[in-house]
């Protein structure tokens, strides 16, 4: 069997390397009975579309962020400042954590099985110029940030002293260059290095959100495999995730340094400033998102994931 696996980064990116290891492990463990063919760079479509295609069984597997188009409750994992640092993240997003079970349930409703998670980075803000006190959420910076079309991001930008501006991703690079917007929010150092390094003059590692991708497979396709093959996939997936948890934090640092090499300054952000920002976001943004996705459900998920909030 050949399984088609889509991911969202170009060939040679960290996720691409990891996913190729995974494919090798699977091939070895099944005596080449199962081959994973990798389609990098969103060649099979963006993550929203690929998630639907995996649900339909038109694409077998993917590693990517969860998409909330088919079920807005997925937004719960995008909650800005759900976790504030790596120590929290390792607990809240761990395999078998309550949040992981929620994610698996949500995917399950779309005929998708979660094999593993892949922690990516903490999000930050990329700016085309230095802005004084950028990390102080109480100061109105008057700077516009391109935000992805997700309510939580737009509200966050507006509430921490920026102006969230929806713009198509395809126009974002030129828009930052000409100054239509002053920066970008919604990604992390790695994403900014890959797509915005020429226009990033200042990087604000303010931990806007914790980006987690999931290794997913169509349920039926998984069920059609024999027990030994299923086990091989699960084992390889567990290794894939465990290895990443060990390197994710250093990988984030490495990508920040790449931004520096490309000419950006990493702005100093204190834990105190992250706390303050988180407090504002949880007060102002969370209630809106929680109401959107269903108050009772969202609160119970959040209670289990991070305790009282």
């Amino acid at each position: 069997t050949t399984l088609k696996l889509s991911h969202v980064r170009p060939e040679g990116a960290t996720i691409d390397v990891d996913v190729r290891h995974f494919a090798d492990d699977v091939a070895k463990a099944t005596n080449e009975k199962i081959k994973v063919r990798i389609y990098p760079a969103s060649a099979l479509g963006d993550y929203t579309l690929v998630q639907e295609r995996v649900g339909l069984g038109a694409v077998d597997m993917a590693v990517q962020p969860p998409a909330s188009a088919a079920d807005k409750r997925f937004q719960v994992v995008y909650m800005p400042y759900l976790v504030k640092n790596w120590t929290d993240a390792k607990k809240v997003f761990a395999p078998n954590s309550s949040l992981r079970n929620t994610v698996s349930d949500l995917y399950g409703k779309q005929d998708i099985k979660v094999l593993a998670g892949w922690p990516v980075y903490f999000g930050g803000i990329s700016l085309n110029k230095h802005i004084n006190n950028a990390a102080d959420p109480t100061i109105k910076k008057g700077a516009k940030l391109r935000v992805p079309p997700v309510k939580a991001f737009q509200l966050t930008a507006d509430n921490i002293g920026f102006i969230g501006s929806p713009l198509p991703f395809s126009e974002a690079f030129t828009a930052v260059q000409t100054g239509v917007v002053d920066g970008v929010m919604g990604s992390g150092a790695e994403g900014y290095y890959a797509s915005f390094r020429d226009v990033t003059k200042s990087y604000l590692p303010i931990n806007t959100h914790f980006e987690m991708w999931y290794l997913i497979i169509n349920k039926e396709i998984f069920a059609d495999l024999n027990k030994k093959e299923q086990d091989a996939l699960m084992t390889a997936a567990a290794t894939f995730e465990a290895a990443r948890w060990k390197t994710a934090e250093t990988d984030q640092k490495r990508n920040e340094q790449l931004l520096v090499k490309a000419g950006a300054t990493i702005e100093p952000v204190t834990d105190q400033e992250i706390e303050e920002t988180a407090k504002i976001v949880r007060e102002k943004v969370w209630p809106v998102v929680i109401k959107d996705i269903g108050t009772d459900w969202a609160n119970s998920v959040l209670d289990k994931a991070i305790g009282a909030h």
Binding site: L44, T48, L49, A58
Partner: peptide
């Protein structure tokens, strides 16, 4: 090849802001 999901794929390309 399969047409399954192809209309979905093609249509999503039309929504591209480019």
């Amino acid at each position: 090849s399969t047409m399954r999901g192809m209309m979905l794929w093609g249509f999503s390309q039309l929504t591209n802001p480019i």
